[in-house]
């Protein structure tokens, strides 16, 4: 199982925080998130992704016990 977490304004818009799913790629996570929310998958494709807390590429392979985090773009303060 892989844990998927969402941060940033997409989290506020969708109300989605986290879930566990049996997936092996980030592509599958985008599709799953689109199903779970009313937001199309392309919006999630714009997110910055971290695998186990470290930024990663969208092509990263996932294995059991991993945690991926998606962040919608953020700015300054």
């Amino acid at each position: 199982m892989v844990k998927i977490k969402l941060f940033g304004t997409l989290r506020l818009k969708t109300g989605f925080k986290e879930m566990e799913a049996d997936i092996s790629s980030i592509r599958e996570a985008w599709v799953l998130l689109a199903q779970e929310t009313d937001i199309p998958a392309r919006e999630f494709r714009k997110c910055i992704i971290a695998l186990n807390g470290v930024p990663c590429k969208a092509s990263a392979k996932l294995s059991d016990g991993d945690e991926i985090t998606l962040f919608s773009p953020s700015g300054g303060g």
């Binding site: 910055i48 807390g53 919608s72 773009p73 953020s74 700015g75 300054g76 303060g77």
Partner: peptide, 23 residues
């Protein structure tokens, strides 16, 4: 703009905590 029209109005500067954690 995604920063001045989305992040800052919705989350304020507080929205950066999670991004900073990742970095």
């Amino acid at each position: 703009h995604p920063l001045t029209g989305d992040q800052l109005p919705r989350l304020g500067t507080a929205g950066l905590v999670s991004t900073m954690q990742m970095r």
